[in-house]
Design a binder for these strands. Structure first.
Length: 553
RNA sequence: GCGCCAGUAGCUCAGUCGGAUAGAGCGUCGGUCUACGAAACCGAAGGUCACAGGUUCGAAUCCUGUCUGGCGCGCCA
């Protein structure tokens, strides 16, 4: 098991011994770093968890277990001491030989260390960003992009098969308004007095799109703009959407986010899927007519009120398309659907689950992680953002301002379910106050040492004594597979970012206390393994959140 | 009014199968470069974990209630 932590075999042996002490009761032995490093290298609370079943006091069990540990097979040969403390903890101190073996094992596992633990492996379809193609993606989309792509990378690393999808809302009144806005700007470029509609899109990016359309079309539509005829509006909406979407794709790729699919809402309407979806709901009794409209009985599935699918004027709602879209998604053979939504859409969860359930699928196949809002601060003050005033910070502007690495790290550093403020002054800083460089610097430092190509004989043996910082660093590396597992299960890339900060801290501490080059052969051998293992885990971890791991900075 | 998320150090936030003395970054104060990169390290100050009850050997963590903040509650998308 090259993917497992070196601690795992110890934990298995410990569980076996604990079970015997407790008279055969099943024992799950948690074995991890103690609250205080001075207590030892590893600690377990298994005696306390067994106390009730064994009808003995935790201390009593712990005393028995500690005595067995030091002679247990697969455990005793690595344990220098096992001491009972507090209410029933057992603190273990491990031998340098174990540390040397563990470091070697991690180096040999390489990029596979922590990989492929998913059980069972699933086919996952993750939909995220899905910004309307009527404007550039903004900071909120950036957070969703960083989150969704981070989750996707983590799931892939864990062993799942992942498809990334972007749903394009290219239908309805908003697209008409967008087309009219582009057409108006196009007219203005030709010197006509064609105002942008009152409730249209005012941003400068509309001018850019109009400019490109003028480059493509010349002035051939100049005389059909006042008022614009339907054919012209449709053309400007369709081509405008393509250009907007192309810009979006480019900015997202610059952000290192790449989608496998862009799924167009329009195809659902034109292909009849929306109509068929509504018919299916009627046929199954999940939809009914009332007041001239067609309603989806979502209350049957836990929603607080029923929702309109088709208005009394015959037009379909946004939900009608979502019905068709989710039935389509659920029927593609994936085991799991992830819809990453912004906080302002959390009210949608119940009706989306209703769609899945009404379609005859297991509603639990759908997960809807909600990404909370992010706001920006600069100079100690909140940066006011308004779509209307045109002060919205776009993804592209954010990247230009603070760089892709800082943007991705910061946006994924905080739990997605917490609203937070991103401090542009800190994120922009290239110096020591920027957390992302703290991690990257650790990687670059290691690369610097390894570039000197220090060597040690293969049979150098193991050091007689270890520095506390060496123990701390190796034990931190041992946590990596568990971190990946937790990030996978909780859909929480921020766990990876937090771990990398911890790991970098342990490395920097080690670096200041321990030299590598020029030490005794057995010391060089062990520390080289520590360096290689650390570099590998940092590079892998940064990769999972879309941040580069540079050899030089 | 109802629902979701949150309330932890001056600021931004980790801590989520209940464990020992609650942590990090930034900020503040004081130290450390004639040896592998000082974008670093070491130390100090800073806490009624919103509040009140409850569950138990043990609660920031679980339960109940209250208060505060963000978001949502449309035949909009």
């Amino acid at each position: 098991m090259p993917d497992a932590s070196p601690i795992t075999p110890l934990a298995h042996a410990l569980a076996r011994e604990a079970s015997q002490v407790a008279g055969g009761a099943d024992a799950v032995a948690a074995l991890g770093p103690p609250a205080n490093p001075e207590f030892g290298d590893l600690a377990t609370n298994v005696a306390m968890t067994l106390a009730k079943a064994a009808r003995r006091s935790p201390r009593d069990i712990a005393d028995d277990l500690a005595a067995r540990i030091i002679q247990a097979e697969g455990l005793g040969e690595y344990v220098e001491s096992a001491q009972v403390a507090g209410p029933g903890f057992i603190n273990l101190r491990l031998s340098p030989r174990w540390f040397a073996h563990a470091a070697r094992a991690i180096v040999e596992a390489g990029d596979a260390y922590g990989r492929g633990q998913a059980d069972p492996a699933e086919r996952v379809l993750i939909e995220f960003v899905s910004a309307n193609p009527t404007g550039p993606p903004h900071v909120g989309h950036a957070r969703q992009a960083a989150y969704g792509d981070g989750v996707a990378r983590i799931l892939e690393y864990a062993g799942h098969h992942v498809t990334r999808e972007f749903y394009v809302n290219d239908w309805g009144r908003q697209m008409e308004l967008f087309g009219a806005s582009v057409a108006a700007r196009y007219g203005q470029l030709l010197g006509r007095d064609t105002p942008v509609p009152e409730d249209g899109y005012q941003g400068d990016y509309v001018r850019d799109i109009a400019q490109r359309m003028r480059d493509e079309l010349g002035d051939s539509y100049a005389d059909r703009l006042d008022p614009p005829d339907p054919e012209v509006l449709a053309l400007f909406a369709a081509r405008g959407k393509e250009l907007m979407l192309a810009t979006m794709t480019q900015e997202l790729e610059r952000f290192r986010v790449r989608f496998d699919d862009f799924f167009s809402e329009t195809t659902l309407h034109e292909g009849g899927a929306v109509a068929r979806g509504l018919e299916a709901l009627v046929a199954s009794g999940d939809a009914y007519e009332k007041d001239g409209a067609l309603w989806f009985r979502t209350t049957d599935y836990g929603d607080e009120k029923d929702r309109v699918l088709r208005r009394s004027d015959g037009s379909t709602t946004y939900l009608a398309a979502d019905v068709a879209y989710h039935l389509h998604k659920a029927g593609r053979g994936d085991d799991r659907l992830l819809d990453v939504l912004g906080a302002d859409h959390h009210g949608y969860i119940a009706r989306l689950r209703a769609v899945i359930a009404a379609g005859g699928f297991d509603p639990d196949m759908l997960e809807v992680p909600i990404v909370q809002l992010v706001s920006l601060t600069e100079g100690g003050e909140a940066k006011r953002m308004s779509k209307r005033a045109g002060t919205l910070v776009t993804l592209g502007e954010l990247i230009d301002d603070i760089g892709v690495d800082a943007a991705r790290f910061f946006l994924v550093q905080r739990s997605h379910e917490t609203a937070f403020d991103l401090d542009l002054d800190v994120a922009r800083a290239e110096g020591n106050e920027n957390p992302v460089y703290y991690v990257q610097y650790a990687h670059a430092r290691i690369a610097g040492i390894l570039a000197q190509d220090p060597t040690a004989p293969g049979d150098a043996g193991t050091p007689a004594h270890l520095d506390p910082s060496e123990r701390a660093l190796l034990l931190a590396l041992c946590q990596w597979p568990e971190v990946v597992r937790e990030a996978e299960h909780r859909r929480s890339p921020h766990r990876v970012a937090a771990y990398l900060m911890d790991l970098a801290r342990d490395f920097h501490g080690f670096y200041h206390r321990c030299r590598v080059v020029g030490e005794a052969p057995e010391v060089v051998a062990f520390r080289l393994d520590l360096l290689r293992a650390t570099r590998s885990v940092i590079a892998t971890g940064l990769g999972l959140i879309g941040v580069e791991a540079p050899d030089r900075m």
